[in-house]
């Protein structure tokens, strides 16, 4: 074990014990430790009452997102060495209601994901459940980037519009809507667009772009939203000019 240590300043909140406070912990420094390792050291050896979420510790499950020195980050991918000599301030993701310590309430986010029907929608699904829908590499390439999301919600913590409008569907869910709308096998575009072409869909967004900056998977939700705006504008004028056309 190394002699060097680093200071963690951890956000503590227990609803029954008054307002939030910061608690400092001294943890050993290791070159290859990530912030999540330091938090687990606290939990295992110093203070078992600290609550936080994590699972895969390899940037796949998306459950370990927190504010690290003020920026949203996956704590399993944020190296302690990048924040030397410290201290490192660890807080729950902003914009989300805090349940306890570093644990935030994700129910609102889950509902927003639900709104955009993040799955392939087929009109003919009932007819033949064993049907195969082939796709060329070019067709895959149209949406692949938007399908890399791990639902870590860092983009929601980075978005000033989420902080202002609770109902704003937000970066990840809108990127996911675009991911399915661009999928050649999908037939649910019109239903999704009824949702995302509302004010609380894409139109609250002012392209601050910070969601794409913090995204650990390079999904570029900001780009997805602007592309949807372009489609939304074309669709708007189509509806305006051909009001008689029937749309399902």
């Amino acid at each position: 074990m190394s002699d060097t240590t680093i200071q963690l300043e951890v956000f503590r909140y227990r609803p029954d014990n008054g307002g939030p406070t910061f608690q400092s912990y001294e943890v050993p420094y290791h070159d290859d430790w990530v912030v999540l390792d330091a938090l687990n050291y606290v939990k295992n050896y110093i203070d078992g009452s600290l609550s936080f979420r994590w699972s895969c510790r390899m940037g796949v499950c998306g459950s370990c997102g927190m504010q690290v020195n003020g920026e949203p980050a996956l704590t399993c991918a944020a190296f302690v060495r990048d924040h030397m000599p410290g201290p490192i301030r660890v807080e729950p993701l902003v914009n989300f209601p805090v349940e306890r310590d570093l644990v935030v309430d994700i129910n609102g986010f889950m509902e927003k994901l639900d709104h955009v029907k993040p799955y392939l929608v087929r009109d003919d699904e009932a007819d033949d459940l064993s049907a195969e829908y082939l796709q060329t590499p070019t067709q895959l390439d149209r949406y692949k980037q938007f399908s890399m999301c791990i639902n870590c919600m860092l983009c929601y913590a980075a978005c000033p519009v989420i902080g202002r409008v609770d109902e704003f569907i937000g970066p990840a869910a809108l990127a996911l809507a675009q991911r399915y709308n661009l999928d050649s096998r999908d037939q649910g575009k019109n239903m999704r667009q009824d949702v995302i072409f509302q004010n609380e869909g894409i139109w609250e967004c002012t392209f601050v772009g910070e969601c794409s900056e913090v995204c650990p998977k390079h999904v570029d939700p900001a780009g997805a939203i602007q592309q949807a705006k372009l489609e939304g504008a074309v669709d708007y004028y189509k509806r305006l000019l051909t009001p008689w056309a029937r749309r399902s």
Binding site: D194, Q198, N199, G201, K229, A233, Y236
Partner: peptide, 16 residues
């Protein structure tokens, strides 16, 4: 929710 937005009208002029 609120139905489809009229923002595209303003947004398209904004982009041009």
């Amino acid at each position: 929710m609120s139905g489809r937005s009229h923002e595209p009208l303003f947004w398209s002029l904004f982009v041009v």
